[in-house]
Structures are given as C-alpha cells and as structure tokens.
Computed example of a mutant assay.
Amino acid sequence: MSTETKGSLRVQVKASVLHGIKDLKIVIRHLGDPEPSEVTVAVQSTGLCGSDLHYFNHYRNGDIIVREPLTLGHESAGTVMAVGDEVTTLKVGDKVALEVGLPCQSCELCTSGRYNICPALRFRSSAKSFPHFQGTLQERINHPAVYCHKLPSSVSQELGAILEPLGVAIHASRRAELPSNSTVLVLGAGSVGQLCAAMAKYDGANRVIIADIQQERVEFALSHQFADASVVVPMKRFERIEDKLAFAKEVAALAKAQNLGAEVDAVFECTGMESCLQAAIYATKPGGRVMLIGMGQPVQTLPISSAALREIDLVGVFRYASTYDEAIKVVERLPQLASLVTQRFKGFENIPAAFAMAGRANDDNGALVLKVVVDLGSTS
C-alpha cells in the first residue's frame, strides 16, 4: 500500500475480528477517504489490556455483551498516511498516539472537561455502544485528528501505545489530589498498578508501597524505582464475611508495617477485588482517599462505616480526560516505562497467541508478563 495525502483513498485493509469466545478471524474491510477533520492512521503498535482479554475469553466484559463481530485493541500508536481537507495540525508521516474515546463534545460534562464520562461517548473496542466502535487491531483506521496526538522523535510507537494506560494513572493521580510528601499504597501490580505507582512517585509522593499476590510483580516495581516498598499478599479465600474482613485487616496491617505502622494518605485500588477494596479502606488514614480504579464485581460488601466514620473518600476513576500532553512529557522523563512491555508479537497471524500470552503470569521462559504488544508492521 502506498502513502497517500489528499484525494481519493479507498483501500482494502486487514482487521482482526472477534466472532465469539476466543474466535478471532482475519477479515478484509474497505476503508474510504478520511472525513475533512480526520486522518488515516496506519496502526503499528497496540497493547492488550484487561478489557480486551474479557471480550476475548468471554465475549463480554461484565454486563456488556458483544452483539456483533468486534475488532479489539485501543492502546495504540501509528503513522499518519492521509489527512482530511480541514486538518492543519498533522501531516503525512507524523507518528501519533491514538485517543480512542470520542465524546459528544457538547454536553455539560464535555464542556466542563469531564468528557470521559460523557453518556454518549463511543470507545474503540468497547461493545457498550451499538453498532460497536471497532478497535485498532486493523491495518488502518480513519480517526479525528483532534484525538491523534503527535509523538516527538524520542518516543517510539511502542511507547506511544503506553500513553493510553498511562492516562488512567495520570487521571487517578489528579483525582487523588495527593498532599505533598504523601504516602501511597497501590493494590495490584499489573501494568496499570505499575503506572499508578510510577505516577505517584513522579507527582512527589514520599513513599509508595505496592502490593500483589505475585512476588515477581512487586519486585519489578522496586527494581524499576516505581515503588519504595512492597507487600506480597497471601493467597487466601474465605466464604464468611467476618473472615473476609479479618483477612482485609491482615493485608492492611502488612501494608502499614511498610509505612512505619501508619495508615497511608491514599490507596490506588487497581484490582477490583472485594478483599482488596476492603483492605484499602482499612489501610487509609482518616481524611484520606481510596481511588477505585480496578473494575471488579458490580456488588461488593464493604466496611463502609470504617470509611464514613474516618471521612475516607471513595473516589471513582474511569479512563481519563485530557491526559495525553502530560503523558508524552512523562514518558520522555521516565524512559524506564518502556520496560513495561514484556512480550511482543508481530503480524495478524500471531494475534491469537498474543491474547493467550496476555492472560498468563509468566511466559514459556519463565519471564514476567505485564504488557503484551502487537506490532502490525510497516506503513508501506
């Protein structure tokens, strides 16, 4: 395929399409000219995230059920191949990171800057809206130029794909309103947890403690200086609520032991697990905040009086808004974030293997799995 500027552009593009549980097929789609305000992007790097895995493994994500064949992928970067007639901010050949949530831009939430919770928002690779907004595991897409963020030469396409989950961490850090020299606990040391820990340090936290059931994950955070201390959470399961809450207090005590026995200013809860959210409440100091980042069971039993009587704020975090400019600056200053990409797969034929790997804790060589990235190849 040749690089185009303006004029007629109608090409056939490959797309990876999910037709059922773990049923990925390569199909051919026809891509027309970009609209006047759009650009055509050759997608090169796409990271796989938890929601992609839920759709792949269950053909649903919580209560959201897939109703038509769906292309997954939304953590992406690529190269501009064509520009619409009204686009002046980008040119052919520019590297861009894709912000894939498109809000209405006119409702009260959008005009106040909270477009991430716009009721009409359409998000690539999500089955929430119908017809579904197809994802980025496709050779090329047409996308509004305003949501294509130009990357500096020092930021690779692969690192550009990290900007999307990094946006979640930036948004969470903003909503946490951390005091200076604060103490932070991060529950869950997957890629988002690692990024939340890194952002807390970046924003000036005095001490960051990270906790996970997998020792390798917390060791990764320590070795890359994303966190200062760690907790390996015991693998325990209970049925009675009394036993669950007792275990949550045990986990909170382990975290407080890493903070001179004191509660923390804020907890970034990145697992969605009931036991972790319970522990987060117990581990937070009076007047502190628990950031609800992980998506877990929709109904959970919480020690709500412990939160209310100590005026602990439970703060929701859903995706991000206006984070890409800051995210680009962060990855330029923290190049070690590139280490979060632990496995790479190239080409459409290897996408099923990439999804299988993303659901594992370790690869065949015993290496830690944090972020799996698919490389769709050249822009030719």
Rank of each mutant, 00 (worst) to 15 (best):
A257W: 02
F123C: 00
Y55F: 14
S2G: 13
G78V: 12
E108P: 04
T79W: 01
D375W: 08
C196T: 11
E86P: 05
Q258A: 10
I213A: 10
E35H: 05
A262Q: 15
E269T: 02
P131V: 00
E177K: 15
S153D: 15
R319N: 08
A42G: 10
M295S: 10
Y282R: 01
K329S: 14
D243M: 04
S106E: 14
C276W: 05
G359N: 08
Q134P: 08
G73I: 06
Y320A: 10
P69Q: 05
F348C: 06
V13A: 08
Q194L: 14
R289D: 11
V341Q: 10
L48K: 01
E349G: 00
A189D: 00
I213S: 08
A279H: 07
E164M: 07
Y282F: 15
Q297K: 14
A353W: 00
H224E: 10
V186A: 12
V17S: 00
S106F: 06
A257K: 13
T3R: 07
D23N: 15
Q44V: 12
S51I: 01
S37R: 04
S51Q: 06
K346E: 15
I312H: 08
F220C: 09
R124M: 06
L302A: 06
L18K: 12
C49I: 10
A221K: 00
K25R: 15
P179W: 01
L31Q: 15
E239D: 13
Q215K: 15
G377N: 02
G47R: 00
V267A: 03
E75S: 11
L31T: 05
M295F: 14
Y59L: 04
A198N: 02
P352L: 05
I312Y: 04
Q138G: 07
A229H: 02
S37A: 11
C148Y: 01
K285P: 10
K150G: 03
I21L: 13
P335V: 07
C270W: 05
T71L: 01
R174H: 14
G32P: 07
S306Y: 11
E269F: 07
V80L: 06
K256S: 14
G101K: 00
S182D: 06
